[in-house]
């Protein structure tokens, strides 16, 4: 018995080095990736595995890294500058749209005190963003609570799926704002109506993606479950849930994206505190620079939400 184990250990060791060799080669390529084709030709000559350790000197590597960084950062910055330039050119000679400079000045004032509160209709931009985010969180939370289990059921039971799918296909293309009056009617108040709108628009991507994920669980895994005769609970927790997780996260990302799109419009209609309502209020006050600031703020918050979820998905995929 000992002999087997020793042998096995030896194989194991060999195989590990082989793996590491592969990985080292990958990093080498990754470093060279940012550089030009010529760079790449220079830096990926024969030596793989071990010579990586003694490989290109560290200064040379740093330079390559710098170049890669610049290559990644420069174009977006240039794009932004171009946008600012066009904006400046278009608004320089007066007109109703403020110049970038004027907008910046207004933004500095606005963000110097984001959390003031002078009654329900006059609050700092921080409060407005936070209350919009809160509405999104609540509406989205309920949608996840309902949508994810519903997606599991639809993916697992074909009859149910063919029963419900036509309804989903019918309701999904409806603009979420069309649901707002129903919300107002049922809840009699603006705030829950806006949350309801978020709920209804974020539920579809979660149902659809979760169901997709469940249907695409590899047959091999399900065969394992059948041979082991696992309980439904074990099947859900050990097999379905982990393999559906990436799909679910995609659903969540799409949901939050849509929710953030919709909240602005919903708040314009319902009023109260929130970034959408704020935009509408500033329009009534004819503070156009504030509207432009709001557009940037909405964009940036949306971007942060999306990137956070992408990062989360990547982390989970790496663990799996």
């Amino acid at each position: 018995m000992t002999a087997i184990t020793m042998d096995a250990l030896k194989v194991g060791a060999d195989e590990t080095t082989a793996l590491q060799g592969g990985r080292a080669k990958n990093t080498l390529l990754a470093v060279a990736d940012g550089g030009t084709v010529a760079d790449r030709k220079l830096k990926v000559p024969p030596p793989p595995a071990q010579s990586q350790l003694a490989g290109p000197s560290s200064t040379e590597q740093n330079a390559a890294q710098m170049r890669a960084l610049l290559g990644a950062v420069l174009p977006p910055v240039a794009g932004l500058l171009l946008l600012l330039g066009i904006w400046q050119l278009a608004t320089m000679n007066g007109g109703s749209i403020p110049t970038p400079g004027k907008t910046w000045d207004a933004a500095v004032v606005l963000f110097s005190d984001p959390f003031y509160s002078n009654g329900p209709n006059d609050q700092g931009i921080g409060w407005n963003i936070l209350s919009s985010l809160q509405r999104v969180a609540i509406g989205f939370g309920f949608a996840a609570l309902v949508g994810i289990p519903a997606g599991f059921l639809l993916g697992r039971f074909a009859t149910l799926s063919s029963m419900v799918n036509p309804i989903i296909s019918l309701l999904r293309p409806v603009s979420p704002l069309a649901w707002l009056p129903i919300g107002l009617l049922v809840f009699k108040k603006a705030d829950p109506a806006a949350t309801w709108t978020i709920f209804i628009c974020s539920i579809w991507p979660m149902i659809m993606n979760t169901a997709q994920g469940v249907m695409r669980v590899p047959q091999d895994y399900l065969n394992v479950a059948r041979v082991l005769n696992l309980s439904e609970w074990k099947i859900v927790t050990k097999i379905l849930f982990p393999s559906v997780l990436p799909y679910m996260l995609t659903g969540i990302r799409l949901s939050i994206g849509t929710a953030w799109l919709v909240i602005v419009a919903a708040e314009m209609l319902t009023g109260g505190v929130g970034i959408g309502f704020w935009v509408w209020d500033e329009w009534n006050n004819l503070k156009v620079e504030h509207i432009i600031i709001a557009i940037f703020v909405i964009g940036i918050v949306g971007l942060i939400l999306e990137q956070t979820l992408l990062l989360l998905a990547k982390r989970l995929r790496m663990e799996a």
Binding site: D220, Y221, N223, V224, R226, V227, K238, P242
Partner: peptide, 16 residues
């Protein structure tokens, strides 16, 4: 039907 008294080693290992 399948059951643990007839264990299967799958062609592609099928580890989770």
């Amino acid at each position: 039907g399948p059951g643990p008294e007839r264990a299967v080693v799958f062609q592609n290992h099928s580890l989770l």
